[in-house]
């Protein structure tokens, strides 16, 4: 693990200077995360736990106050542009067709339009976008917009992809379909994915490992390996193993929600109940 880690974050912290002489805000404190090549890792946490700050640092959009971000074991000269990044909103350009939206990354890499189109079109079927190449994004459903945004990130060709709550705005049914679909796609190319969500079930269902973050200051409060066999089917969410993991992850989240203080839970755990 130590040697093979694709993305490694060490002692990362970020402090925002208070506006107008106000108090400083510590958004992140000593955050450590590690992802191996081809791993699917999720971060769950309540809103305001610093997930977005963490993402923006890894994407190279903001600089940390302390700590390191290592790619393939070393600090890249320029983090910005080294990892794939998909923001929460689809951010599709309404003035570009679906096809031209998905090739944005290739275009900025200097790939010729014809070649870029060819590469994108080869993926349209798999991303469930076939037949919508020439449509404007406004004509797409919410799920299709997210798949188009995902294809754009995918085609940009970075080894590591950061996905920030990509299914957060979708209805429950679409969301479930998208999760299943994402697993299928990931299974095929095994890209390294760091996925942010506030949905514990989603995190367990998709990931090899889940980090729980708690807020103020944002820090990793728990790391849980998800050893459920792959490929996973949606029914897996009903199994005892899954529910155990869910309970394990929910507890620190409840603590975080209760204010982050010491939270003594004397309810019997599921293990004890069984």
């Amino acid at each position: 693990m130590q040697a093979g880690s694709k993305l490694r974050i060490e002692g990362l912290s970020k402090t925002y200077r208070g506006a107008g002489g106000g108090e400083n805000v510590t958004a992140l404190k000593d955050v450590g995360i590690e992802i191996g090549a081809g791993e699917f890792v999720s971060i769950v946490g309540p809103s305001g736990c610093g997930k977005s700050t963490l993402f923006n640092i890894i994407a190279g959009l903001i600089r940390p106050s302390g700590g390191k971000v290592l790619l393939d074991g070393r600090q890249p000269d320029e983090l910005l542009g080294s990892v794939g990044y998909m923001p929460q909103r689809d951010c599709l350009m309404p003035w570009r067709t679906v096809l031209d939206n998905t090739t944005l990354g290739l275009e900025l890499n200097g790939v010729r339009k014809k070649e870029a189109h060819k590469r994108a079109l080869a993926e349209f079927e798999r991303f469930g976008l076939a037949g919508f190449e020439k449509h404007w994004p406004a004509k797409l459903s919410g799920g299709m917009k997210q798949r188009a945004a995902l294809l754009r990130t995918f085609l940009a060709g970075r080894d590591v992809m950061l996905l920030d709550e990509p299914f957060g705005a979708l209805d429950a049914l679409t969301r479930a379909n998208m999760q299943e679909w994402l697993l299928d796609v990931w299974q095929e190319d095994r890209k390294t994915i760091l996925f942010v969500t506030h949905d514990v079930e989603e995190a367990i269902y998709l990931s090899d490992r889940v980090y729980v973050m708690s807020g103020r200051p944002g820090r990793v409060s728990l790391e849980v390996d998800v050893s459920l066999a792959r490929p996973r089917k949606p029914e897996i969410t009903m199994t005892p193993e899954f529910l155990l993991l869910k309970q394990k992850l929910l507890r620190p989240l409840e603590e975080a929600a209760a204010g982050g203080g010491l939270f003594v839970d004397d309810r019997p755990t599921l293990e004890e109940q069984i």
Partner: peptide
């Protein structure tokens, strides 16, 4: 967010 995305695409 779009401008940030463009930055990450260099």
């Amino acid at each position: 967010e779009l401008l940030n995305l463009l930055k990450t695409l260099k």
